[in-house]
């Protein structure tokens, strides 16, 4: 709630596309960071009362996930917490995750491919915050674990007594980010693109540039490049 009200005025007055993009995804980082500390405290207390199970975790995370949906001025598609491997007492891995229009609890075991067996420890949204200790904007990527859609996942590490215990995260669908951000980005030119750390195009004001394609190597030469501080995103403006 604080993030939305605090940052809303800033985006209206963004002076350049880098500021616009940084403010937009920064809202998500800010929102997650507003509850990772509190959640760590709750997990600490729960640990003192006995083993932390998936059920205990779900109950602790749910209010924060709901708050993320309700208070953040972004088209949040999914939110929750993903436990570090082998940290819970009754499961190797677990996603305390809510998503979709009805914010339904994600249950992996009921899906066509057994997604419970998918090892998420090497997926970008888990791996990067784990190793860097800092929030990360991951994607765009096809999220075959949760949303089944083309997705951006913003994730922040949660630490308990210096130990990594999982990531707090939220999903934004590229479809909705495009509707949200493209009109505002268009104010800065007819060939302005957002790319991620591997040069993958998130969206572009040019209709000829396809989301999912890459701008790498020598094709970068025609652009003025602006890095978004605190996230692995860049704004490319055609010269």
């Amino acid at each position: 709630m604080t993030s939305a009200t605090a940052s809303a005025p800033a985006e209206r007055t963004s002076a350049d596309p880098v500021a616009l993009v940084t403010e937009y995804f920064g809202r998500a980082i800010h929102s997650l960071s507003s509850w990772t500390g509190e959640l760590a405290g709750a997990l600490h207390e729960a640990g003192g009362r006995g083993a932390v199970t998936t059920e205990v975790l779900d109950d602790l995370v749910e209010p924060y996930a709901r708050r993320t949906f309700d208070s953040l001025d972004l088209p949040v598609y999914g939110a929750g917490f993903i436990a570090a491997l082998d940290w819970l007492s009754d499961a190797r891995s677990h996603l305390a995750w809510w998503q979709g229009a009805d914010r339904a609890k994600l249950v992996l075991a009921s899906q066509s491919v057994n997604k419970e067996l998918i090892d998420y420890s090497e997926l970008e949204w888990y791996r990067v915050p784990q190793s860097s200790g800092a929030p990360h904007v991951a994607g765009p990527y096809v999220d075959y674990l949760c949303s089944d859609e083309y997705t951006i996942t913003v994730a922040a590490p949660v630490e308990l007594d210096g130990q990594f215990v999982g990531v707090a995260g939220l999903d934004l669908l590229i479809d909705q980010v495009e509707r949200d951000l493209l009109p505002r980005l268009s104010a800065f030119g007819s060939d302005v693109s957002i790319v991620n750390g591997v040069g993958r195009l998130l969206l572009s004001t040019s209709a000829r540039r396809e989301t999912g394609d890459s701008i790498r190597g020598s094709s970068l030469e025609g652009f003025e490049r602006g890095a978004c501080p605190g996230m692995a995103l860049e704004v490319l403006t055609a010269r």
């Binding site: 765009p140 990527y141 096809v142 075959y144 089944d148 859609e149 083309y150 993958r200 989301t211 999912g212 394609d213």
Partner: peptide, 11 residues
Amino acid sequence: AALSQSARLTR
């Protein structure tokens, strides 16, 4: 499939 960046094809 996911590296195709197509959600439909991946599903």
